[in-house]
Design a protein around this nucleic acid. Structure first.
Lengths: 206, 206
DNA sequence: GTCGGTAGCACGACCGTTCGTGCGATCGGA
DNA sequence: TCCGATCGCACGAACGGTCGTGCTACCGAC
């Protein structure tokens, strides 16, 4: 999520107002991220999306021009939400151990609060497109790379000895907690993740 | 994978021979697990499966009676393969730290060798059905529960202090390595996983 | 009057599913 | 030893439905 700021979808503005089409587009994409987090980006069908939003299929389709473009836009929208929910809150503190800890806690909260109803949007979509080459997979992979890079840089700023290794382990704990919670309704997994993180992430007043 | 032995699909046998239909069924399921590990259990379409196997769609369908039954049979087939590839080889050594280590190494090898072309079958399918209630989800969740239970029992037998916590962390490392490998072609992730495991899993001659 | 935004409608392809049929092996009775 | 009945298995054709994708027309704001 290094390109955090540019990932935020900014509405087209005229005289300070948001155009009508752009507003519809936002509604579409917000719902699209919710559906995709549960049923995947392939399970996200244009007809179903249109029905749920009380919009004609063709009217919705005109916004994107193809299913692939809808999927790409959905990934971008999910990134923007992720940045807002996890990254931005951590940037209020200066670089260092506290910021690293805020990123971890923010992520666990983002998963636990079900910002996306299916749990972490990116985990769902990564597994779906992991071995299916194409632009969507690349977009999804980029999101993961940027998030890892942010963690790694922050870990380095916190004085961690091996930031790449720590990043691997942190991501592993976070995603395992999300998986256990979504698949087994295992609420305790978040506590286990936190315990594992405490043993790894540099201490800070908590 | 506690019910390992019963999960193995045994062919119907008459006079020591395997009936024709059972053999076809095995071919279908072997291919089904491969497809599903890449495109998911929903992306696994009956028509496509039939085409790839040079079989009529209706003939294939008759073996299962419904798509859901095909999906369930595919999960069972994948369990049998997993047991053969990961669990059984570890059971050759007596309970203890070495068996635990063999399970970890076996899993990493199973992922790295791409026993299923899309990486770990269960990780792909867990993410897909994680928040979609139904019999398929239950079957997938059970597989994860049994695998975790096997790890936890083995960890306890190895004298680990907190087997549940260790199991959480081990599973996290294994799955994170698989994800990084599949999504980012990051071969080094297996080394990172092994490094993380060495710091956690009790030592044994390696 | 222009133009962005939405709706209606139809298309070809593919989906899971059902049906009737045919072929080959097996088996029981003459 | 033959022969008809039965069974397992696979086939092709077709069903209703949904998919993504076009084309055309209307409608409302500037």
């Amino acid at each position: 999520m290094a390109t955090a700021s540019t990932a935020v979808t900014v509405g087209v503005v005229t005289d300070g107002r948001i155009e009508r089409g752009e507003q519809t587009r936002r509604l579409i994409l917000r719902r699209a991220t919710e559906i995709a987090s549960v049923d995947g980006l392939e399970g996200l069908s244009i007809g179903r999306l249109a029905t749920e939003l009380d919009i004609s299929k063709s009217g919705l389709f005109a916004h994107f021009g193809s299913k692939e473009e809808l999927q790409l836009a959905t990934v971008r929208a999910a990134r923007a939400i992720f940045v807002e929910e996890v990254v931005r809150p951590a940037l209020v503190v200066p670089p260092g151990a506290e910021r690293l800890w805020l990123l971890c806690e923010g992520w666990l909260s983002y998963s636990r609060r079900r910002v996306f109803p299916g749990g972490c949007f990116f985990q769902a979509v990564q597994a779906e497109f992991g071995s299916r080459p194409g632009r969507v997979r690349d977009a999804v992979a980029d999101a993961g790379i940027d998030w890892g890079a942010l963690l790694e840089v922050t870990a380095a700023e916190a004085g961690v000895q091996d930031p790449a290794q720590l990043t691997f382990e942190v991501v592993a704990f976070l995603e395992a907690a999300n998986t256990a919670s979504v698949l087994h309704d295992d609420h305790a997994a978040y506590d286990r993740a936190r315990a594992a993180l405490r043993a790894r992430v540099p201490a800070v007043r908590r």
